[in-house]
């Protein structure tokens, strides 16, 4: 077969129609018939036009709404991010504040502790001084008491000794002298008796 015949045969095969040697027409396995292509194309065009006319706006509106929604979500995400950043800044600031507050409280506690220690030292010194004073006073009191007790004991012993000595030294003559002296003394009072 010549080259030309081969191309023609190929085109014919590509056109979907082949004709065998007996004149039997066989449709292409790939290509529809021309009329079908025309009708199908027109129908497709009509469908596309109808879709463009009736479904297009809704589709467009849907796409637009989805775009808006996505945009809103993006905006919301941006806002959330901004809020989060703000919150993070606040937290960081608060953290800084907490640190400062902690430092302030620690400083205050240290100052109070120092003050308490100083106050305690002062009171302790005063108490020790007071104890010293009271101890000294107690010692003096004890000395005085012992002295008083000693004096009382000496007095008691002296009195007992004097009484015994007097009792032993008073004989009958002395008794009579004392009685006579009393009678004379009472007799001389003359209405001026005193207790």
């Amino acid at each position: 077969m010549s080259v030309l015949a081969t191309i023609t045969h190929f085109i014919a095969e590509e056109g979907g129609v082949s004709v065998d040697s007996e004149g039997i027409v066989t449709h292409s396995a790939f290509w529809p018939e021309t009329a079908e292509i025309i009708y199908g194309g027109l129908a497709s065009i009509i469908i596309f036009v109808l879709l463009a006319k009736f479904a297009g706006p809704a589709l467009k509106k849907g796409l637009s709404g989805r775009t808006d929604k996505i945009q809103k979500e993006l905006d919301s995400a941006a806002n959330d991010k901004a809020a989060a950043l703000t919150e993070a800044a606040t937290v960081r600031q608060a953290k800084g504040d907490i640190g400062a507050e902690r430092a302030r409280l620690l400083a205050e506690a240290a100052a109070q502790a120092e003050s308490l220690v100083a106050d305690f030292d002062t009171r302790l010194e005063a108490e020790i001084a007071d104890l010293h004073t009271r101890a000294a006073a107690d010692i003096e009191t004890a000395k005085g008491r012992q002295s008083d007790e000693l004096r009382a004991e000496i007095s008691r012993l002296s009195s007992a000794a004097a009484e015994r000595a007097v009792a032993e030294s008073i004989d009958d003559a002395t008794h009579q002298q004392l009685i006579e002296a009393f009678i004379q003394k009472a007799g001389s009072m003359a209405g001026s008796a005193s207790v």
Binding site: I179, A186, G187, M189, A190, A193
Partner: peptide, 9 residues
């Protein structure tokens, strides 16, 4: 005498 002395006193 004591009686008299006390009476006197």
């Amino acid at each position: 005498r004591l009686r008299a002395a006390l009476a006197n006193a």
